[in-house]
């Protein structure tokens, strides 16, 4: 396995499993994350999986207390542990991916850029909706904002660059397109994605554990709902 290591500051290490966004690299990232989840590593603070890497935050002082050689740099000690883990990584199981259904009310006031996306790709608005519904979606990572998924698998015929001037405020639940990616705004935030619809589903739930509805590795299915259904679901506290 072609793996590279680099420090991120003096309390974290980034392990890189590849250089492109693809399923094979994602699988390795997921396998490594599963290994960490399955072992209790008391010197680790937390880890962040991304498209191609896993970054582990660690406590150098805890490592020095564990290490037999006080001259060994904590970073080197961590790197050696990870190299050992990678040897039996292939036997680590990752479990069956979950599939989460995200209901979306497309167009209208919820999707102010649907028309622009259609025009940009020389399609009808309904074509954009149909193609967005047909995608085979995978959550590669959560980042940018609490619970915000980076989703791969969108049909490239509905891709469109980000807006040149980002909006000051995008409502929570907005579904957008940026380049070849689609995503859902998990909290109200400024942003530049082309908005095609909105979901009543809450992606970030600080009162729940885990707080993010979606996790890296989840499969996603979008379904189309009416404005009436949107407001009914919005009232549902479990949504």
């Amino acid at each position: 396995m072609d793996v590279t290591y680099s420090p991120l500051g003096d309390q974290a290490i980034t392990i890189k499993f590849g250089t492109s966004i693809d399923l094979d690299v994602h699988q390795k990232v997921k396998q490594f994350a599963s290994y960490i989840d399955q072992h209790s590593i008391e010197w680790m603070v937390e880890y962040i999986p991304t498209f191609t890497t896993v970054t582990m935050y660690y406590d150098p002082m805890k490592i020095l207390r564990k290490s037999t050689d006080p001259e060994t740099l904590p970073y080197e000690w961590v790197r050696q542990r990870i190299e050992e883990w990678l040897k039996d990584l292939t036997s680590t199981t990752t479990g069956t991916p979950r599939t989460i259904t995200i209901p979306v009310c497309y167009g209208g006031e919820f999707g102010p850029d649907l028309h622009a996306v259609a025009t940009y790709n020389q399609l009808e608005e309904q074509d954009v909706i149909n193609l967005h519904l047909q995608g085979d979606y995978l959550v590669y990572m959560i980042g940018f904002a609490p619970g915000f998924p980076y989703i791969g698998g969108m049909d490239e015929t509905i891709s469109m660059p980000r807006k040149e001037e980002p909006r000051q405020s995008i409502p929570e639940g907005s579904v957008g397109i940026a380049g070849k990616q689609t995503g859902v705004y998990s909290i109200e935030t400024p942003g530049g994605w082309q908005l095609i619809g909105r979901t009543p589903l809450r992606l970030f739930r600080p009162e729940e554990s885990p707080p993010s509805l979606l996790q890296a590795g989840d499969r996603i299915v979008f379904t189309s709902i009416t404005e009436e259904e949107f407001y009914t679901l919005k009232e549902d506290p479990s949504c």
Partner: peptide
């Protein structure tokens, strides 16, 4: 707030 960065929590 440590432990939640993998869920995008700052």
């Amino acid at each position: 707030r440590h432990g939640y960065q993998k869920e995008g929590v700052v």
